[in-house]
Amino acid sequence: MSVLIFAELDEGKLKGSSKEAIYYGSKVAESLGTAATAIVIGQADDAELATAGRFGAAKVLHAADSKLTEANGMAYASVVAAAAEQEGSTVVVVAKSSLGDAMAARLAGKLRAGLAANVVDLPNLSNGFRVKRSIYTGKAFAETELTADKKILAIKKNTITPEEKEATASVEAFSPALNDSDFVLKVTNTEKATGDVLLPEADLVVSAGRGLKGPENWGIVEDLAKALGAATACSKPVSDLDWRPHHEHVGQTGIKISPNLYIAAGISGAIQHLAGVNSSKVIVVINKDPEAPFFKSADYGIVGDVFDILPRLTKAVNAL
C-alpha cells in the first residue's frame, strides 16, 4: 500500500532530485495514511541507502543485480513494476530526469497508470486525486485529475524543499526476475562530463549566449560558475554553432531547468529561451543592450559589458 519512490543514483550516491522525490513521496504517504518506500537500482552501499530515511523513506528496496548497473529505462521500469506489486503501491513518485522520464513512461504502459509529468505541488486529495503540473514549457499550469487506480507523479526540480530528520531507512535486497527483452540495446560509447555539476540537478546556473563572441571566451563563464558552485548552460544559437555541447542548451527545444538562481550573460531573452528557464526562482540578466527583452523577465539586471562584469562578479564571490 506504501507510496513508492524511484530514487536514482549518481556514482553510488542518491541524486539531489531523488532526495526531493523521496521527501515529496513521504508527504504524499502521510496524507494517504501510509509509509514511503524507495526503490533504488544499481550499485550503492547500505549506509548511503539508509540515508533515504533522512528524507522520509521508511524502507529502501535495493536492486543491485550487475545487469542493472548500466542505466536502462526499460529494465528499470520492470523492476519498479515488480516493487510496486510487492508493496501494493498505487502511487509512484519519480524526479524528472532523462532516466526518470524513460522509466516512468514504460512503467505507465505496464501498469496502465495515469502519469502526470512536471508536477509542481503536493497533490490535492480533497476532490479525487489532483495535481498541478507545469505545461506549455513553463508558461502555464494545468490542474490535472488522475482518474486511474494507479498513478505516477514525475516531479519538477524545486517542487518541494526537503526538511531532513534524524532517521535511517531499513534496506532490503530486491531481486526480481529480469527479462531478456529489456536488455536489447547495445551501448557502444558513453561520453559524460565528470566532476561538473549536472545542469538539470544544479541549484545555481550561469548561462551565456552569443554576446560572449566565441567559445574561446567561455573561461569567464566557467570561472563564475566555479566560484558559485554552479553549472554552466548556454542559449540555442551557441549550441547550434557548436561553441558548447547540446546538453548545456536551455530553452524551448533544449533542457528546461528550474534552479534557485539563473544568471544569463549576453543572452537577449527570446521567448523560446525564456520557456526553458522561466521557472527559475531568481533570474539575473547581464547585457550591454538596455533594450534586451530579457530584462523584463529578470529579478536583477545589469546593463554592461559581460567581459567586464563577469570577472568582477567572480572576484566578489571569491571575496565572500
Partner: peptide, 8 residues
C-alpha cells in the same frame, strides 16, 4: 544523457 551523450 544528463551531462553528455551515449551511442547505441
Amino acid at each position: 544523457i544528463e551531462g553528455g551523450k551515449q551511442a547505441l
